[in-house]
């Protein structure tokens, strides 16, 4: 995290912004890299992402399209489990491809941090970290 409560990740994709935009806004394509969804690219549209439920998380992320600028910016709210957050995608043409920026903001910086610190001290931290990292690659943390 570059600042408390916000996660920023970016990646270069060797594909033009128009194509990246398709993968970000076509629900059939979104399902292939994120989750099942009834997303529609219209500001104000309410939609969900669905995955397997887990303790403390019913498997449903409730969202609303907050902002949309085709091939440039897409912002949706992200509410699931104990989270009430905002996800912002920004696309920037770079060479023959696109740099895609993701900002996930609105985390409570104290509560989950505290829990992670405790978990870290209590477990055999190496195996704990690996379990966690491999698990989260497939399902959104709640």
């Amino acid at each position: 995290m570059s600042e408390r409560g916000t996660i920023r990740v970016d990646q270069f994709l060797p594909h033009p912004p128009a194509k990246v935009w398709r993968a970000l806004t076509d629900p059939d394509l979104i399902a292939r890299w994120l989750m099942q969804t009834d997303f529609v690219p219209v500001v104000g549209h309410r939609f969900t992402f669905r995955t397997d439920p887990r303790p403390g998380f019913d498997g449903i992320v409730r969202c609303e399209v907050l902002d949309l600028d085709p091939q440039r910016l897409l912002r949706w709210s992200w509410r699931g489990g104990s989270l009430d957050t905002v996800v912002t995608w920004t696309l920037l043409a770079e060479g023959r491809g696109t740099r895609l920026f993701l900002e996930h903001s609105g985390f409570d910086p104290d509560d989950p941090l505290q829990q992670r610190t405790y978990a870290l001290l209590d477990g055999g931290w190496r195996s704990h970290v690996w379990r966690r990292l491999t698990k989260v690659l497939d399902a959104p943390p709640s």
């Binding site: 970000l24 890299w33 989260v136 399902a139």
Partner: peptide
């Protein structure tokens, strides 16, 4: 954990593209 999650998802997005 969410940072790791999103890095994983971005990798999957790249595969789809």
């Amino acid at each position: 954990p969410y940072e790791a999650y999103w890095r994983g998802r971005l990798g999957a997005l790249r595969d789809v593209l």
